[in-house]
């Protein structure tokens, strides 16, 4: 198990270097000069431009810039954002809880609905519930995120007026962030109605962000269940006289979850990509929205820092999934 863990961790090193390379060079491939964008419409004199370029290190060769960046990164320095003049590290961790809260809500939504839906579809294979689940999943998977978000906003915020359109909490409430998680902070603040408001704000973004993972998890669960239900050990379980609930929910699901957990882990990457769109649509002050803003400002440091941090989060999640995999599947746990 320890060797397994060590191997997984060592594999992260080349991945990490790849991510820094991609982050560093791709943002520089984009047309647009950060110094000109920073200066805005006032314009800038050539002397001032040269001075800024020197200060930001843009006058040095690209590979030198990269190694300087990598060196800083390894000592934990993500650099300073051009536009806000604040350390990227601080910016990221101010906004990250908002994204984390939304992503967690979305993945919980997707898992809690997706696994039972997949199980029901598999058990009722070829019958109405199966067709319902599978066609809904297909629609959910193919629906463009922005379109789905607009649709929900029109119906639930516009016509029905059940949910707010944007933000994390109503402007009526204000309290200093403690954990950065709005649901927890609103409870801590003790202000009446604050928690309800936070929940209401969370509903639509959660649905929007969770829809694709939901569809993927439901489909994956169904196919994994169908495979497992045909196994000999399911016949054994039924021959023991166990109830269908024990056979399906105990013996079959436990085995079917093995591939499903891998899928859930992979969905975290999809989720963070989806968060960028979802946060922009709902003006959710998380890293997704921050990344979009930073890209349009050509804020190299912020974009690089953000990408690297997101990559680290995804890598940690995948590592956790690998470990979880061993926990649920004894065959892997015992493999040397």
């Amino acid at each position: 198990m320890l060797a397994f863990l060590l191997r997984r961790v060592l594999l992260l090193i080349p991945t990490f270097i790849g991510v820094t390379l991609a982050a560093f060079f791709f943002i520089r491939l984009l047309p647009g000069d950060p110094i000109l964008l920073l200066a805005g419409e006032r314009g800038i004199t050539p002397e001032r431009y040269a001075e800024l370029a020197t200060r930001l290190g843009f006058d040095r060769p690209l590979y030198e810039q990269y190694f300087a960046y990598l060196g800083n990164l390894l000592s934990g320095d993500l650099g300073v954002s051009f536009s806000t003049k604040r350390p990227v590290w601080d910016e990221f961790f101010t906004l990250f809880p908002a994204t984390l809260e939304l992503s967690l809500a979305a993945i919980i939504f997707a898992v809690v609905l997706g696994i039972p839906a997949g199980v029901i579809a598999a058990v009722k294979r070829g019958k109405a519930p199966d067709h319902l689940v599978m066609s809904t999943a297909l629609v959910g998977y193919s629906m463009p995120i922005f379109w789905w978000a607009l649709l929900l906003i029109i119906v639930f915020s516009g016509w029905l007026q059940w949910t707010p359109v944007s933000g994390r909490i109503s402007l009526l409430y204000f309290f200093p962030p403690v954990t950065g998680f709005m649901l927890i902070d609103s409870l801590i603040s003790g202000q009446r109605g604050a928690f309800n408001s936070a929940v209401q704000h969370l509903i639509l973004p959660t649905i929007v962000l969770g829809t694709i993972p939901l569809a993927v998890i439901a489909r994956q669960t169904r196919s994994a269940m169908l495979e497992v239900l045909g196994e000999d050990y399911i016949r054994t379980a039924r021959a023991k006289g166990l109830s269908p609930l024990r056979v399906v929910g105990g013996h079959a699901l436990r085995n079917a979850l093995i591939p499903v957990i891998t899928t859930i882990g992979l969905q975290v990457g999809v989720l963070l990509a989806g968060a960028i769109l979802t946060e922009t649509i709902f003006s959710w002050p998380g890293i997704g929205k921050w990344m979009i803003d930073s890209i349009s400002r050509r804020d190299y440091q912020a974009v690089q820092g953000g990408l690297v941090m997101i990559a680290i989060v995804v890598m940690i999640v995948n590592l956790t999934v690998d470990l979880l995999y061993g926990l649920i599947n004894p065959r892997i746990r015992h493999r040397r």
């Binding site: 054994t236 436990r254 085995n255 649920i328 004894p330």
Partner: peptide
């Protein structure tokens, strides 16, 4: 009842 394939007749997760 017991079956032909004992190796696959036991649930690998339990």
């Amino acid at each position: 009842m017991i079956f032909q394939e004992p190796m696959s007749s036991l649930n690998p997760c339990f």
